[in-house]
Design a protein around this nucleic acid. Structure first.
Lengths: 349, 349
DNA sequence: GACAAATAGTAAAACGTTTTACTAGATGTA
DNA sequence: TACATCTAGTAAAACGTTTTACTATTTGTC
């Protein structure tokens, strides 16, 4: 009478009429001729008959590393992350790892509890898109993982500190570049619409915007809205529209979702986009190309970002020497129909 | 000199100057007065100081079930799945489980290899959105998991067999309902555009379409295209447009992404949607509301579907009696601007 | 025929935790 | 005093695998 329905190496040994060690040795390298063909056959047949699959936890006990990676992201329903995740997990699978996806829902408490679970599981590594990179607890969390011998990389969201390697883009330059494009399109009154508590990388993009404006001697127009609150966003658009110095363009460093929110708000207010108001986003998620008017934006290499993060993490796990602690990927300005060149317009009459 | 940097229960015992068993007993229930306050303090302090976290694998060895669930989906970048995943993982976290997300990329081989990994890890349960529910290998895969004592639920994609419980919608009725709406809108020439090798649930929707057409004595117009091939989809739209009996409406049971592909194709051919051609999708993913014209579609309760799947799986894991082996959730017809009532149009002149 | 070397296989320890059954000493009871 | 009971704690086995070092048998060599 068996205790459980799980088949163990002992069951295989019994069926093949050899010792447990023999099974283990043969399974380790079935081609090895440490044992004669006939014995190997017998064991392999028993394995097949019983559909035996060694228990990972027992192997872990003997010091084998678990081939699982934890990937913590802040919000699965933001279309940015599935693409990053996709690149990450595909690369992980290629390298022989499985991925545990943990959706922190923008809660740092969740993140902390996830981290404990990952430590308890002794995962091989962790990649993290932190909730707030600015928060002190975020740093502690990364260091806690590292103190348990678990390598960590940050993906997309990072700060220029030295606590862990990261993969992302140069957000300052990207913010600068987008602003510069709008400026070259003849816009001078450009508003920057950002969430109330921007994560560090968004603040960087904003810094780029400010610098580009200053470079032309223009005053920045910065408007905050409550993160994730469509109505608050709407109010900002309305307020800007009725302001003394009405902007001709609007940039949302927080992402394309914010820009789409602005387009919706403009629709509701009968503001024509881009004729009355140009709107530019960030990220180039799939919807950006599908929404009407199609969104002018900065394309982040999302899939690549996930892929490279996993590559970097792999090197950390394997203790390979890193060529760099940080990987900055190229971004790309994507011109679509939600922005307009004021100069072109003036030539038409 | 320590062998590894991982802290074990032995380290805690040493620091607290008690035996390993004492630590274990106290940690199991710190409030329990099996030991005097002073000893419990000493142990708990040591735990805190060393930041000890018991190794899951050692607990597993002693028979404790791993609180991890495998969720296999066919394509993360299809926006349908992140929403299902989101509902699933949130519910899982509430119930004390973590989720391993496995993206099979529509490859049944990948799926099989994932299943082996999940067995090796001895996960508590598996939820699966199968690549092809019709495929015999899919059935074998589910049965293989079950034979290892791992409960399985199917999510969204299922067949009416009895090999495992499932959560989804009544796809036949949904296909019927959408067709009926179009018919009531005065359309009689309605084409059904489906992928070449439809999964079972898509075939069911198509069956609903055929039935609704037959009910009015109308002939079904069914067009296949190569799955995932935008150009093939384009050709279908063009062919339909130039057919003898040109359809006035078009239904894509394969999902909203197909419908959006058709809108794009129509755009390119200067066919006006919905004035010249009504287009209806399926699923109501986020983009459906954002694309222009906004898509008429059938809303699936995606988040709820994920949530309920996890709930059902939990019951299986806990060996609770099920009220039903299958959960069918309600769907909803969503009218937007990509379809038109022919009757309304005629009244305008 | 004596010894060395190769072959075929195994026993046992180790990994980190939980659990069961135990002990030694203190306290209570008649 | 003699025994029972309680208190505070521990020793040791078990879980499933891998690995090291071992044994017993066969084969080869002179």
């Amino acid at each position: 009478m068996k205790k459980s329905n799980r088949v163990t190496i002992t069951d295989v040994a019994r069926l093949a009429e050899v010792s447990v060690s023999t099974v283990s040795v043969i399974l380790k390298d079935p081609e090895n001729n440490r044992f004669p063909e006939v014995t190997r056959r017998r064991v392999l047949d028993a394995v097949k008959e019983l559909q035996y699959q060694p228990a990972v936890y027992a192997q872990q006990m003997r010091g084998k590393r678990l081939h699982v990676i934890g990937l913590i992201i802040p919000d699965l329903t933001n279309h940015f992350y599935p693409e990053v995740t996709s690149g990450f997990t595909e690369q992980a699978n290629i390298l022989g790892y499985n991925v545990i996806l943990l959706n922190s829902n923008n809660s740092i408490g969740q993140e902390q509890s996830f981290a404990e679970t990952l430590i308890a599981m002794r995962v091989a590594g962790v990649a993290i898109c932190g909730v707030y990179t600015i928060d002190e607890r975020e740093k502690q969390l990364i260091q806690r993982l590292q103190s348990q011998g678990i390598p960590v990389v940050r993906v997309d969201r990072y700060e220029e500190d030295n606590i862990s390697p990261y993969v992302g883009i140069d957000n300052y330059s990207a913010g600068y570049a987008m602003t510069e494009e709008l400026l070259q399109g003849g816009h001078t009154a450009i508003a920057c619409v950002v969430p109330d508590e921007p994560v560090h990388i968004v603040a960087e993009r904003q810094r780029g915007y400010v610098a580009a404006m200053a470079n032309r001697g223009l005053n920045p127009i910065i408007c905050g809205f409550r993160n994730g609150d469509a109505q608050s966003l709407s109010q900002v658009v309305e307020r800007l529209w009725h302001a003394d110095e009405r902007p001709t363009a609007l940039f949302t460093p927080g992402g394309d979702m914010d820009a789409i929110g602005c387009i919706r708000a403009a629709d509701a207010l009968a503001i024509r986009v881009p004729d009355d108001l140009s709107i530019a986003g960030f990220d180039d998620i799939y919807v950006a190309s599908v929404v009407r008017p199609a969104l002018t934006t900065i394309r982040q290499p999302k899939y690549e970002m996930g892929k490279q993060s996993m590559g970097l993490l792999y090197k950390l796990i394997k203790r390979e020497k890193l060529t760099s602690e940080r990987i900055l990927l190229p971004f790309e300005y994507i011109r679509r129909h939600s922005t307009i060149n004021l100069t072109d317009v003036c030539l038409i009459p």
